[in-house]
Simulated scan of single mutants.
Amino acid sequence: MMKHVIALDVSKGKSSVVIYDRYRQCEFEGELNHTRIDFERLHERIEEITKSDGQVPHIVFEATGVYSKSVEAFFKNHGYTYSRMNPLEANLQMAKMRRHKTDCSDAHELAKTHFK
């Protein structure tokens, strides 16, 4: 059973991040600047979730070319498994549920579609 999902909507220099628990409830919503300190905080949060759940959270983000390179490098360097969605696929899945467009709402929709 999937426990936590971390979804990122990546843009230039920063990402909107949401964390959902196994009940599909949002536990955290915030911004991740693509800096060493913010990536370190995300790493700590992933480790806390892994410890409490007994499994690594599912991680999903939309491939946004050059903007998502640092995010992907962070996950690779720490050995995390992630789903990098192609933007067309992500947009098609999210269009089914779309209400209004913001980076933060995109992160929420990515998380919700990942449970399916």
Score class of each variant (00 low, 15 high):
80 Y>Q: 04
7 A>D: 00
37 I>W: 02
74 F>S: 04
80 Y>P: 03
97 M>A: 13
75 F>K: 09
44 E>Q: 13
20 Y>S: 06
66 V>W: 06
90 A>M: 04
109 E>D: 15
68 S>M: 13
87 P>N: 10
109 E>C: 04
99 R>C: 07
33 N>E: 02
36 R>Y: 12
37 I>N: 14
114 H>K: 10
74 F>E: 02
28 F>N: 09
15 S>C: 04
55 Q>V: 12
23 Y>L: 14
84 R>Q: 13
88 L>C: 02
39 F>S: 01
95 A>D: 10
51 K>Y: 12
22 R>K: 14
22 R>T: 01
110 L>H: 07
20 Y>E: 10
29 E>D: 03
67 Y>C: 08
68 S>T: 13
40 E>A: 15
62 E>D: 02
46 I>C: 06
82 Y>I: 04
54 G>Y: 07
27 E>R: 12
64 T>G: 01
110 L>S: 08
24 R>K: 15
28 F>V: 13
100 H>W: 08
109 E>W: 07
102 T>C: 00
45 R>F: 05
48 E>S: 13
31 E>F: 02
78 H>D: 03
20 Y>N: 07
103 D>N: 15
82 Y>V: 02
63 A>V: 13
30 G>Q: 04
72 E>G: 13
25 Q>F: 12
33 N>C: 00
80 Y>I: 03
107 A>K: 05
21 D>A: 10
101 K>W: 04
10 V>G: 03
13 G>T: 02
5 V>H: 00
53 D>C: 11
75 F>N: 03
51 K>N: 12
78 H>N: 13
115 F>P: 05
67 Y>L: 05
82 Y>G: 01
68 S>A: 15
78 H>P: 06
96 K>T: 12
81 T>L: 11
43 H>D: 14
49 I>V: 11
81 T>G: 05
84 R>W: 00
40 E>R: 11
30 G>I: 09
76 K>P: 00
37 I>L: 05
87 P>Q: 06
106 D>Q: 13
105 S>P: 00
106 D>S: 13
12 K>G: 01
62 E>F: 02
24 R>C: 10
41 R>E: 12
40 E>P: 00
32 L>M: 04
108 H>V: 10
60 V>D: 02
107 A>N: 01
37 I>R: 10
111 A>F: 07
22 R>P: 00
40 E>N: 13
42 L>K: 14
6 I>P: 04
12 K>H: 03
69 K>H: 10
77 N>W: 08
40 E>H: 15
52 S>F: 11
81 T>R: 11
12 K>V: 07
83 S>W: 06
25 Q>C: 11
114 H>A: 15
31 E>Q: 14
100 H>N: 07
30 G>L: 10
114 H>P: 00
107 A>L: 03
